[in-house]
Amino acid sequence: MSLVDLIARADERGLAVSGLACLDRCVPLLGGDDEVLRPLWSSLADGGADGDAWGERLAKARAELDCADPSADTVPGLGPDPAPGSGSGAETETEAETEAAVSDEDRAAALARRMLATAPGDPCASTLRAWADACSAAALQIHRLLDVAADGDGPLVAAERRRQVAVLELLAGRGAGGLRPALEVSTEGRRVLRAVVSRRARGRS
């Protein structure tokens, strides 16, 4: 089954885990340690995404990672498209020059911040589905930005797609019992991305 179909068929817990797993794998871009989102995983194990613990722990994670306001993210190329005719040619040229100066790492980090900032604090099936879908797309784009391949689905993107599918299949097949192996899948992906981020940082120094 395709990734799109798996997200479309996932229940509330599966959607919450899918979005959280995508975000968890991208924590290295936010400067957080490997345990910063663990309380959110615990809230899903304790009582599902509709418990009060989710909202409280989400607020704490946002505070720790300084991701409270999605509107604060103004990295060029990641915001909504401007309305037709809203800018002059000079403004468009300036924006293009600014975007060219922004690194792929900056764009990837901005996507990760947005994933956390837009997470529903009081989840229900409708909001979770939109968030999980957005997290899936953002995580794939993050890996595409950091991939060694010039275009298309390089090894990082392909591996991230496989992990997303694996997480959704685990939750669909095992329910709450799929949480621990889903966390293990996410942990593996986070280690890979942390290594990529470190290698790119060394290459710039």
Rank of each mutant, 00 (worst) to 15 (best):
M1K: 06
S2L: 11
L3K: 09
D5A: 15
L6P: 00
A8P: 03
G14M: 04
V17R: 01
P28D: 10
L30F: 04
W41A: 10
D46C: 08
G48I: 01
G55T: 04
E56P: 00
R57H: 14
A59C: 01
A63N: 03
E64T: 03
D69E: 08
D69N: 12
A72Y: 06
L78C: 08
P82Q: 01
P82G: 04
A83L: 12
E91L: 10
T92S: 13
T94R: 13
T94N: 03
E95S: 02
A101Y: 04
V102Q: 14
D106F: 02
L111K: 11
T118P: 08
A119Q: 13
A130W: 06
A130F: 07
A132T: 02
A134G: 05
I142M: 10
L146D: 12
D147A: 10
V148P: 00
A149E: 15
A150Y: 12
D151A: 15
G154D: 07
A158G: 07
R163L: 13
A166T: 15
V167L: 13
L170P: 05
L171C: 08
L171F: 02
G173F: 01
G175Q: 10
A176L: 14
G177Q: 13
L179S: 11
R191P: 03
L193H: 09
V196S: 03
V197F: 04
R200F: 05
A201N: 05
